[in-house]
Design a protein around this nucleic acid. Structure first.
Length: 290
DNA sequence: AAATGAGTCAACCGCTCATTA
DNA sequence: ATAATGAGCGGTTGACTCATT
């Protein structure tokens, strides 16, 4: 093999960093039309100044229609813990058991939440074992008492064995309070939302390009800095009650979908306005996105 | 109000594996 | 059998947000 592996692309000619809405739209519309048979060739064909690997990652982790967004449910977290016990850090393997979840997302939630939870659980058990008459310290009161979690520190395979565990407090999910009752309510609410999620309408994105008032020429790659909260397309997983109340004609569904994307892409400034006869768009305050 | 630190997560890097010529 | 290539994977980074001081 010569002098080593050739780079996957010319690093000097590709754009790095966060994806802009215009780039997202280009990638979506191209894949909708032609699929993604060859990631290496895709950026050039789609008119993107991106590495093929970057396009693939963006599509798989965020843009493909079946990707599930929002907080992990307690059930999903437990599944990850169980699967990690079996598979270790084989994130893609774990992800294959969680429909709609990506390996990257699972890896992140493990490293930021679940690993700490298990470490703290271990710490808690150590304390119980070392002091039979010790009462539970208040700082540990939020530990989930799922008895099926059996992972040990060795199984974690990490570098945090000495990590200070006080950093755990409230980290089960970003918005979860340390009150057990409050956690229960939040979890129940999440499950209710998940149970109401519906399928994304089958829409040809290429048609949208004719309707959305944006010029997707090369200059758009120098997209002005976009607020991070709107820089990424969030596929709508709309509560059924909101989504179906207004009827179900294809045209109507397309209008709603396009309206949603316009707002998510920053093509309109209105965040909370209604469209399509009262259809309220989900946005940053959507509990699914918190 | 400003500075600082911790937590989060999208994206990149480099490696391995599978496939093809 | 071997080299070249592309896809996929896991580890890591760095920008950003939020809480605390």
């Amino acid at each position: 093999m010569g002098k080593g592996r050739a780079p996957c692309c010319d690093k000097s000619k590709v754009k790095k960093g966060p994806w802009t809405p215009a780039e997202d739209l280009k990638l979506i519309s191209f894949i909708q039309k032609y699929g993604h048979g060859n990631w290496r060739a895709l950026p050039k064909q789609a008119g993107l100044l991106r590495c093929g690997k970057s396009c693939r990652l963006r599509w798989i982790n965020y843009l493909r229609p079946d990707v599930k967004r929002g907080n992990f449910t307690p059930q999903e977290e437990d599944t990850i813990i169980k699967l990690h016990h079996s598979f270790g850090n084989r994130w893609s393997k774990i992800a294959s058991h969680l429909p709609g979840r990506t390996d990257n997302e699972i890896k992140n939630v493990w490293n930021t939440h679940l690993k700490k939870r298990i470490l703290k659980k271990e710490e808690y058990r150590d304390m119980k074992n070392n002091s039979s008459c010790a009462s539970s310290p208040s700082s540990l009161s939020s530990i989930h008492q799922d008895d099926h979690i059996t992972s040990s520190r060795e199984e974690l395979g990490d570098h945090n064995k000495g990590q200070h565990l006080d950093t755990y407090a409230g980290s089960c999910s970003p918005n979860t309070t340390t009150s057990s009752n409050a956690s229960l309510n939040v979890d129940q609410f999440s499950m209710d939302m998940i149970n109401q999620v519906i399928e994304i309408p089958d829409i040809d994105f290429s048609d949208m390009l004719d309707d959305i008032p944006i010029n997707l020429g090369p200059h758009d790659l120098d997209y002005p800095k976009v607020d991070s909260s709107t820089a990424h397309i969030q596929y709508p997983q709309l509560p059924v009650a909101q989504y179906t109340a207004q009827g179900s004609s294809d045209e109507y569904e397309c209008q709603k979908w396009m309206r949603y994307l316009e707002i998510e892409l920053g093509l309109t400034t209105s965040n909370n306005e209604q469209c399509c006869d009262g259809f309220t768009l989900p946005h940053q305050n959507n509990p699914m996105q918190v």
